[in-house]
Design a protein around this nucleic acid. Structure first.
Lengths: 211, 211
DNA sequence: CTATAAAAAGACCGACCGTTCGTAAACATA
DNA sequence: TATGTTTACGAACGGTCGGTCTTTTTATAG
């Protein structure tokens, strides 16, 4: 920091490197991240990266932090402030499931990809990714919980089964994220998901419309 | 082949290379496969590999074929010949779910890992893996179908929902395969899965025991 | 303006990578 | 045994990698 509070050079390049690294992650994954490519893409010397992070692994962990911070601030936090509850699932869909397709899935895709990539390699990154993916799935589970709960309550299922199937749905969402990202499968899967939710939301026998 | 039908030298080393490559895949994934490591582990020269496959990509595709052939012949085909039907789910568990834990999950883990690893890199391998994973999930879905169907029929759900949740279970199984492979999470997750299935199987109100 | 410390640059290292080539051994066949 | 082919080898190439230096530039403070 300078005395007037603006970012000094180092912090600006640091942020730029993290952005570029996160971008390149979509090419060959977090494990395939190349310091040379990051530096070249930014027009920056490769050695300069080692002034900010002592190793490639440190940079990779920083990229995870970066992704986490980005999606937390811009997506999860606003989502948690959205209207909640089971009373009007279709309204919830408009505000939560709509942005879910556009914003949440890419984030889940990143963590799921990285998780699978590092799954076979013991180390700090793998453990970190496992924790991240768990957090992410918890959020996805919360998103899907309303729909599943509605259907199961109608069917008279016990709470245990609800929890189990809810978790399955969260896992399913993350798992299918990369596949969903590719058209035209994306549209078909999206339509299937919405067709599954719509009758539950509009069926007047489930819950009465709020007056 | 020789005139008497035995394997000649080339085919033996070719098979050995595929075995070793598939083994090393568990270390750094299919993308992290190193021809040098494969050759060194076998005590074979690295250049000799190029006499059998023209490039690394060709070997990777061959490894996929190898994995596919192995698990198809030794696991899927015997499984499809196992006793079917819903009459005794618990017996089905003994024969199908038991081997499912031991044999099927590693196979699904391989394809899921590879699929995620190559998801971001367009190319022949990614397309091939997508097809493989689809096939594998189809099988897993069939394995899990009996259990889900039982539970849902009791709850009076419609066929559409059954299909949807069955597919979710298949996806879930593949997704969680790498996680399940690590103890002690494996035991806990296995117990959770079995605890979920056991009441469905032993509940006499679902289906009567066969006489 | 000068002094000073942070930051970026650039040359360089050893290791490993996939790949190619020329050559030698092992083989089936006759 | 002689022959032609298959198979494997060793050396080397060009390239990229992560990482370590030393040097130069830059921005700030006094």
């Amino acid at each position: 920091m300078t005395h007037d509070g603006r970012l000094i050079r180092g912090e600006r390049t640091r942020a730029a490197v993290l952005d570029q690294a996160l971008l390149l992650t979509t090419v060959a994954g977090l494990g395939g991240l190349s310091l040379s490519q990051v530096a070249d893409a930014l027009g920056v010397s490769k050695s300069g990266l080692f002034a900010h992070w002592r190793s490639k692994e440190a940079l990779q962990l920083a990229v995870i932090d970066h992704a986490r911070a980005q999606w937390t601030d811009r997506i999860i936090r606003p989502a948690l402030q959205a209207p909640r509850g089971l009373r009007r699932l279709w309204a919830v869909h408009d505000t939560r499931l709509g942005f879910y397709e556009a914003e949440v899935l890419p984030g889940g895709c990143f963590f799921a990809n990285a998780h699978f990539e590092f799954n076979a390699r013991p180390g700090v990154i793998r453990d970190r990714l496992a924790a991240e993916l768990t957090d992410w799935m918890t959020f996805l589970t919360g998103v899907a919980a309303d729909a599943v709960t509605l259907g199961e309550l109608r069917a008279g299922a016990v709470a245990e089964d609800i929890a189990y199937q809810t978790e399955s749905l969260g896992v399913c969402a993350v798992m299918q994220a990369p596949v969903l990202g590719r058209a035209p499968t994306f549209r078909r899967a999206r339509r299937a998901l919405l067709d599954h939710l719509r009758p539950l939301a509009t069926d007047p026998t489930i819950l009465p419309e709020p007056t």
